[in-house]
Protein backbone atom coordinates (compact mmCIF):
# COMPACT_ATOMS: atom_id res chain seq x y z
CA UNK A 1 0.00 0.00 0.00
CA UNK A 2 0.96 3.60 -0.30
CA UNK A 3 3.24 4.22 2.65
CA UNK A 4 3.44 7.08 5.09
CA UNK A 5 6.83 8.60 5.78
CA UNK A 6 8.19 7.81 9.23
CA UNK A 7 7.37 10.24 12.02
CA UNK A 8 6.73 10.29 15.72
CA UNK A 9 3.41 11.30 17.22
CA UNK A 10 2.81 13.39 20.31
CA UNK A 11 -0.67 13.55 21.78
CA UNK A 12 -0.89 16.32 24.39
CA UNK A 13 -4.07 16.79 26.43
CA UNK A 14 -4.18 20.57 26.30
CA UNK A 15 -3.79 23.39 23.81
CA UNK A 16 -0.75 24.58 25.76
CA UNK A 17 0.71 21.13 25.40
CA UNK A 18 0.15 21.28 21.66
CA UNK A 19 1.84 24.66 21.38
CA UNK A 20 4.76 23.45 23.48
CA UNK A 21 5.14 20.32 21.36
CA UNK A 22 5.12 22.37 18.17
CA UNK A 23 7.84 24.56 19.64
CA UNK A 24 9.91 21.59 20.70
CA UNK A 25 9.97 19.97 17.28
CA UNK A 26 10.99 22.08 14.33
CA UNK A 27 8.93 21.14 11.30
CA UNK A 28 6.26 19.40 13.32
CA UNK A 29 2.72 19.39 11.92
CA UNK A 30 -0.66 19.29 13.58
CA UNK A 31 -2.97 16.36 12.87
CA UNK A 32 -6.66 16.41 13.75
CA UNK A 33 -9.02 14.20 11.70
CA UNK A 34 -6.15 13.25 9.41
CA UNK A 35 -8.20 13.21 6.23
CA UNK A 36 -6.19 15.99 4.58
CA UNK A 37 -2.72 15.64 6.04
CA UNK A 38 -2.38 11.88 5.77
CA UNK A 39 -3.02 11.65 2.00
CA UNK A 40 -0.60 14.54 1.59
CA UNK A 41 2.02 12.76 3.67
CA UNK A 42 1.43 9.53 1.75
CA UNK A 43 2.23 11.63 -1.29
CA UNK A 44 5.42 12.79 0.43
CA UNK A 45 4.42 16.43 0.08
CA UNK A 46 5.99 16.89 3.49
CA UNK A 47 8.04 14.69 5.81
CA UNK A 48 7.56 16.15 9.27
CA UNK A 49 9.59 14.49 12.04
CA UNK A 50 6.68 14.75 14.45
CA UNK A 51 2.91 14.97 14.21
CA UNK A 52 1.23 16.71 17.08
CA UNK A 53 -2.17 15.17 17.51
CA UNK A 54 -5.22 17.04 18.71
CA UNK A 55 -7.07 13.81 19.45
CA UNK A 56 -6.84 14.16 23.21
CA UNK A 57 -7.45 17.89 23.43
CA UNK A 58 -11.02 17.75 24.66
CA UNK A 59 -11.12 21.52 25.04
CA UNK A 60 -11.39 21.81 21.26
CA UNK A 61 -14.62 19.85 21.02
CA UNK A 62 -17.05 22.40 22.41
CA UNK A 63 -19.89 23.92 20.46
CA UNK A 64 -21.76 26.54 22.44
CA UNK A 65 -23.76 29.66 22.13
CA UNK A 66 -22.24 32.56 24.04
CA UNK A 67 -25.03 35.11 24.29
CA UNK A 68 -22.90 37.49 26.30
CA UNK A 69 -20.43 37.77 23.47
CA UNK A 70 -23.10 37.37 20.81
CA UNK A 71 -21.27 34.42 19.33
CA UNK A 72 -21.56 30.78 18.49
CA UNK A 73 -18.23 29.23 19.41
CA UNK A 74 -17.26 26.10 17.53
CA UNK A 75 -14.20 24.27 18.75
CA UNK A 76 -11.69 23.44 16.05
CA UNK A 77 -12.00 19.76 16.92
CA UNK A 78 -15.74 19.52 16.26
CA UNK A 79 -16.33 17.13 13.37
CA UNK A 80 -18.10 18.15 10.18
CA UNK A 81 -20.84 15.59 10.86
CA UNK A 82 -21.47 17.17 14.25
CA UNK A 83 -21.76 20.61 12.69
CA UNK A 84 -24.08 19.38 9.96
CA UNK A 85 -26.37 17.75 12.51
CA UNK A 86 -26.22 20.29 15.31
CA UNK A 87 -29.62 21.84 15.97
CA UNK A 88 -28.23 25.29 16.82
CA UNK A 89 -26.04 25.43 13.74
CA UNK A 90 -28.91 24.31 11.57
CA UNK A 91 -31.22 26.94 13.02
CA UNK A 92 -28.81 29.87 13.16
CA UNK A 93 -26.39 29.12 10.35
CA UNK A 94 -28.10 26.82 7.86
CA UNK A 95 -25.59 27.55 5.11
CA UNK A 96 -22.80 26.28 7.34
CA UNK A 97 -24.70 23.14 8.34
CA UNK A 98 -25.35 22.49 4.66
CA UNK A 99 -21.74 23.06 3.59
CA UNK A 100 -20.34 20.90 6.39
CA UNK A 101 -22.82 18.17 5.48
CA UNK A 102 -21.74 17.86 1.86
CA UNK A 103 -17.97 17.81 2.28
CA UNK A 104 -16.33 14.79 0.62
CA UNK A 105 -18.15 11.73 1.99
CA UNK A 106 -19.93 10.66 5.18
CA UNK A 107 -16.95 8.74 6.54
CA UNK A 108 -14.66 11.69 5.91
CA UNK A 109 -17.10 14.06 7.60
CA UNK A 110 -17.14 11.73 10.59
CA UNK A 111 -13.39 12.22 10.91
CA UNK A 112 -12.65 15.67 9.53
CA UNK A 113 -12.88 18.65 11.88
CA UNK A 114 -13.87 22.23 11.27
CA UNK A 115 -10.38 23.42 12.22
CA UNK A 116 -8.91 20.96 9.79
CA UNK A 117 -11.26 21.96 7.02
CA UNK A 118 -10.54 25.67 7.51
CA UNK A 119 -6.83 24.87 7.27
CA UNK A 120 -7.27 22.39 4.38
CA UNK A 121 -4.15 22.62 2.32
CA UNK A 122 -4.56 24.17 -1.11
CA UNK A 123 -5.07 21.70 -3.91
CA UNK A 124 -3.85 21.38 -7.46
CA UNK A 125 -3.95 18.65 -10.07
CA UNK A 126 -0.14 18.83 -10.28
CA UNK A 127 0.39 18.66 -6.52
CA UNK A 128 -2.00 16.12 -5.01
CA UNK A 129 -0.34 13.14 -6.67
CA UNK A 130 2.26 10.66 -5.55
CA UNK A 131 5.92 11.54 -5.39
CA UNK A 132 6.46 9.15 -8.30
CA UNK A 133 3.80 10.93 -10.36
CA UNK A 134 5.31 14.32 -9.71
CA UNK A 135 8.62 12.88 -10.89
CA UNK A 136 6.96 11.82 -14.12
CA UNK A 137 6.06 15.42 -14.99
CA UNK A 138 9.67 16.41 -14.49
CA UNK A 139 10.02 16.90 -10.78
CA UNK A 140 7.13 18.68 -9.16
CA UNK A 141 6.31 22.36 -8.99
CA UNK A 142 6.41 25.43 -6.75
CA UNK A 143 4.36 23.69 -4.08
CA UNK A 144 6.28 20.40 -4.09
CA UNK A 145 9.87 19.70 -4.98
CA UNK A 146 10.12 21.75 -8.17
CA UNK A 147 10.43 25.39 -9.12
CA UNK A 148 7.95 25.80 -11.95
CA UNK A 149 4.21 26.25 -12.14
CA UNK A 150 2.28 23.92 -14.46
CA UNK A 151 -0.91 25.95 -14.25
CA UNK A 152 0.45 29.40 -15.03
CA UNK A 153 3.53 28.98 -17.21
CA UNK A 154 6.40 31.12 -15.95
CA UNK A 155 4.31 31.87 -12.86
CA UNK A 156 6.34 32.47 -9.71
CA UNK A 157 3.42 32.37 -7.34
CA UNK A 158 1.66 29.13 -6.48
CA UNK A 159 -2.02 29.20 -7.49
CA UNK A 160 -3.14 25.95 -5.87
CA UNK A 161 -6.82 26.25 -5.00
CA UNK A 162 -8.37 26.89 -1.62
CA UNK A 163 -10.82 23.96 -1.73
CA UNK A 164 -12.57 24.03 1.62
CA UNK A 165 -16.36 23.97 1.43
CA UNK A 166 -16.69 25.70 4.77
CA UNK A 167 -14.30 28.59 4.37
CA UNK A 168 -16.43 30.63 1.91
CA UNK A 169 -19.46 30.08 4.12
CA UNK A 170 -17.66 31.06 7.31
CA UNK A 171 -16.31 34.20 5.69
CA UNK A 172 -19.76 35.07 4.40
CA UNK A 173 -20.99 34.79 7.99
CA UNK A 174 -18.22 37.11 9.27
CA UNK A 175 -16.55 34.34 11.24
CA UNK A 176 -13.44 34.92 13.28
CA UNK A 177 -10.67 32.42 13.73
CA UNK A 178 -8.97 31.99 17.07
CA UNK A 179 -5.34 30.91 17.05
CA UNK A 180 -3.09 30.05 19.96
CA UNK A 181 0.67 30.10 19.61
CA UNK A 182 3.85 30.75 21.52
CA UNK A 183 2.95 34.43 21.71
CA UNK A 184 -0.49 33.74 23.04
CA UNK A 185 -3.98 33.87 21.68
CA UNK A 186 -5.21 36.04 18.85
CA UNK A 187 -8.49 36.46 17.08
CA UNK A 188 -8.73 37.63 13.52
CA UNK A 189 -11.47 37.80 10.92
CA UNK A 190 -11.36 34.64 8.83
CA UNK A 191 -11.55 36.88 5.76
CA UNK A 192 -8.08 38.17 6.65
CA UNK A 193 -6.61 34.75 7.42
CA UNK A 194 -5.82 33.80 3.83
CA UNK A 195 -3.42 35.15 1.31
CA UNK A 196 -2.69 34.44 -2.28
CA UNK A 197 0.17 32.00 -2.04
CA UNK A 198 -0.71 28.37 -2.52
CA UNK A 199 2.44 27.21 -0.75
CA UNK A 200 1.50 28.87 2.53
CA UNK A 201 -1.97 30.26 2.10
CA UNK A 202 -2.82 31.18 5.69
CA UNK A 203 -1.43 33.70 8.10
CA UNK A 204 -0.97 31.09 10.82
CA UNK A 205 2.44 31.69 12.31
CA UNK A 206 4.83 28.88 13.03
CA UNK A 207 3.71 27.06 16.13
CA UNK A 208 0.16 28.39 16.03
CA UNK A 209 -2.83 26.13 16.19
CA UNK A 210 -6.46 26.91 15.34
CA UNK A 211 -8.61 26.44 18.43
CA UNK A 212 -11.98 27.96 17.62
CA UNK A 213 -14.20 29.49 15.00
CA UNK A 214 -16.54 32.20 16.18
CA UNK A 215 -19.74 33.06 14.39
CA UNK A 216 -21.52 36.31 15.29
CA UNK A 217 -25.16 35.52 16.05
CA UNK A 218 -27.48 36.90 13.39
CA UNK A 219 -28.50 40.45 14.27
CA UNK A 220 -31.56 40.50 12.07
CA UNK A 221 -33.41 38.58 9.40
CA UNK A 222 -31.27 37.10 6.68
CA UNK A 223 -30.92 34.38 4.08
CA UNK A 224 -27.74 32.43 3.50
CA UNK A 225 -26.86 29.59 1.20
CA UNK A 226 -23.96 27.53 -0.04
CA UNK A 227 -23.83 26.18 -3.56
CA UNK A 228 -21.21 23.98 -5.12
CA UNK A 229 -20.47 21.77 -8.07
CA UNK A 230 -18.45 18.61 -8.01
CA UNK A 231 -18.52 15.92 -10.66
CA UNK A 232 -19.74 13.31 -8.20
CA UNK A 233 -22.21 13.85 -5.42
CA UNK A 234 -19.81 12.27 -2.96
CA UNK A 235 -16.08 11.56 -2.61
CA UNK A 236 -15.16 14.70 -4.48
CA UNK A 237 -13.75 18.15 -3.85
CA UNK A 238 -15.73 21.17 -4.98
CA UNK A 239 -14.79 22.49 -8.40
CA UNK A 240 -17.02 25.48 -7.90
CA UNK A 241 -17.96 26.92 -4.55
CA UNK A 242 -20.08 29.97 -3.70
CA UNK A 243 -21.38 31.18 -0.34
CA UNK A 244 -24.16 33.76 -0.27
CA UNK A 245 -25.59 35.86 2.52
CA UNK A 246 -28.21 38.57 2.39
CA UNK A 247 -29.27 40.63 5.38
CA UNK A 248 -32.90 41.66 5.00
CA UNK A 249 -35.13 44.38 6.33
CA UNK A 250 -37.73 41.79 7.34
CA UNK A 251 -37.98 38.01 7.52
CA UNK A 252 -39.28 37.55 4.01
CA UNK A 253 -37.68 36.94 0.62
CA UNK A 254 -39.62 39.96 -0.56
CA UNK A 255 -37.95 42.18 2.01
CA UNK A 256 -35.30 44.56 0.86
CA UNK A 257 -31.65 43.66 0.95
CA UNK A 258 -29.70 45.61 3.54
CA UNK A 259 -26.36 43.93 2.99
CA UNK A 260 -25.06 41.31 0.59
CA UNK A 261 -22.04 39.11 0.84
CA UNK A 262 -20.74 36.64 -1.71
CA UNK A 263 -17.61 34.56 -1.16
CA UNK A 264 -16.15 32.25 -3.77
CA UNK A 265 -13.70 29.37 -3.31
CA UNK A 266 -11.67 27.07 -5.62
CA UNK A 267 -10.12 29.97 -7.53
CA UNK A 268 -6.54 30.48 -6.39
CA UNK A 269 -5.10 30.10 -2.92
CA UNK A 270 -7.35 32.75 -1.43
CA UNK A 271 -11.13 32.79 -1.28
CA UNK A 272 -12.56 35.83 -3.01
CA UNK A 273 -15.05 38.20 -1.45
CA UNK A 274 -17.07 39.66 -4.29
CA UNK A 275 -17.26 43.45 -4.16
CA UNK A 276 -19.41 46.15 -5.77
CA UNK A 277 -22.74 44.61 -4.86
CA UNK A 278 -24.18 47.96 -3.78
CA UNK A 279 -26.57 48.02 -6.69
CA UNK A 280 -28.42 45.10 -5.15
CA UNK A 281 -29.04 46.89 -1.89
CA UNK A 282 -32.46 48.30 -1.24
CA UNK A 283 -34.11 45.93 -3.70
CA UNK A 284 -36.30 43.06 -2.57
CA UNK A 285 -34.33 39.80 -2.55
CA UNK A 286 -37.02 38.36 -4.79
CA UNK A 287 -36.42 41.06 -7.41
CA UNK A 288 -34.73 39.16 -10.26
CA UNK A 289 -32.38 42.12 -10.55
CA UNK A 290 -30.71 41.08 -7.30
CA UNK A 291 -29.85 37.64 -8.61
CA UNK A 292 -28.64 39.18 -11.83
CA UNK A 293 -26.48 41.85 -10.20
CA UNK A 294 -24.90 39.43 -7.80
CA UNK A 295 -24.22 36.71 -10.35
CA UNK A 296 -22.81 39.15 -12.90
CA UNK A 297 -20.48 40.66 -10.32
CA UNK A 298 -19.34 37.19 -9.29
CA UNK A 299 -18.73 36.19 -12.87
CA UNK A 300 -16.86 39.38 -13.62
CA UNK A 301 -14.60 39.27 -10.58
CA UNK A 302 -13.79 35.55 -10.27
CA UNK A 303 -11.46 33.81 -12.67
CA UNK A 304 -11.07 30.07 -12.09
CA UNK A 305 -7.77 28.53 -13.17
CA UNK A 306 -6.79 25.18 -14.63
CA UNK A 307 -5.50 24.11 -11.22
CA UNK A 308 -8.33 21.62 -10.64
CA UNK A 309 -10.10 19.32 -13.12
CA UNK A 310 -12.54 20.64 -15.71
CA UNK A 311 -12.03 23.60 -17.96
CA UNK A 312 -11.56 26.94 -16.28
CA UNK A 313 -13.74 28.62 -18.91
CA UNK A 314 -16.61 26.30 -18.10
CA UNK A 315 -16.25 26.81 -14.37
CA UNK A 316 -16.16 30.55 -14.80
CA UNK A 317 -19.36 30.51 -16.80
CA UNK A 318 -20.95 28.29 -14.18
CA UNK A 319 -20.13 30.78 -11.41
CA UNK A 320 -22.74 33.02 -12.93
CA UNK A 321 -25.32 30.22 -13.15
CA UNK A 322 -24.74 28.79 -9.69
CA UNK A 323 -24.74 32.19 -8.03
CA UNK A 324 -27.97 33.22 -9.73
CA UNK A 325 -29.60 29.91 -8.89
CA UNK A 326 -28.43 30.20 -5.31
CA UNK A 327 -30.31 33.47 -4.95
CA UNK A 328 -33.35 32.08 -6.76
CA UNK A 329 -33.41 29.06 -4.47
CA UNK A 330 -33.38 31.27 -1.37
CA UNK A 331 -36.34 33.16 -2.75
CA UNK A 332 -38.17 29.98 -3.68
CA UNK A 333 -37.68 28.56 -0.19
CA UNK A 334 -39.38 31.60 1.26
Amino acid sequence: MLRLPQFQVESPDTVEGVVAALQRHAGARVIAGGTDILPNLKHFLDTPPVLVSLARVTALRGLQRDDAAGLLRIGAGVTLTQIAEDAQVRALFPSLAHAAGIVASPVIRNMGTLGGNVNLDTRCRYVNQSEFWRGSIGGGCLKSEGNVCHVVPKGRNCVAAMSSDNVPVLISLDANIVLVGPEGRRVLPLADYFHADGVAHTLARPGEVTVELQLPLPAGPRRARYTKWSVRRSIDFPLLSVALRFDLAADSPHAEVLAAKVVVGVLGAKPRVVTRLDEALGKPLSDPAVARIVSEATHAQCKPLDNVPYEAAYRREMLRVYTRRGVEAMVAEG
Binding site: W133, S136, I137, R232, R233, S234, I235, D236, P309
Partner: peptide, 24 residues
Protein backbone atom coordinates in the same frame (compact mmCIF):
# COMPACT_ATOMS: atom_id res chain seq x y z
CA UNK B 1 -2.41 10.52 -20.09
CA UNK B 2 -1.44 14.16 -20.33
CA UNK B 3 0.55 14.78 -23.52
CA UNK B 4 1.46 18.27 -22.27
CA UNK B 5 3.11 16.72 -19.24
CA UNK B 6 5.34 14.00 -20.64
CA UNK B 7 2.60 11.40 -20.74
CA UNK B 8 1.93 11.47 -17.02
CA UNK B 9 -1.29 9.75 -16.07
CA UNK B 10 -4.27 12.09 -15.91
CA UNK B 11 -4.99 11.11 -12.31
CA UNK B 12 -4.17 7.59 -11.13
CA UNK B 13 -6.39 7.46 -8.08
CA UNK B 14 -9.99 6.69 -7.15
CA UNK B 15 -10.40 10.39 -6.41
CA UNK B 16 -9.42 11.59 -9.87
CA UNK B 17 -10.79 8.58 -11.75
CA UNK B 18 -14.38 9.18 -10.85
CA UNK B 19 -16.51 6.07 -10.53
CA UNK B 20 -20.16 6.69 -9.63
CA UNK B 21 -21.06 6.54 -5.94
CA UNK B 22 -24.34 5.46 -4.34
CA UNK B 23 -25.63 9.02 -4.85
CA UNK B 24 -24.71 9.23 -8.54
Amino acid sequence: VDPEHRGAHAGPSLLDYRMPTFLD
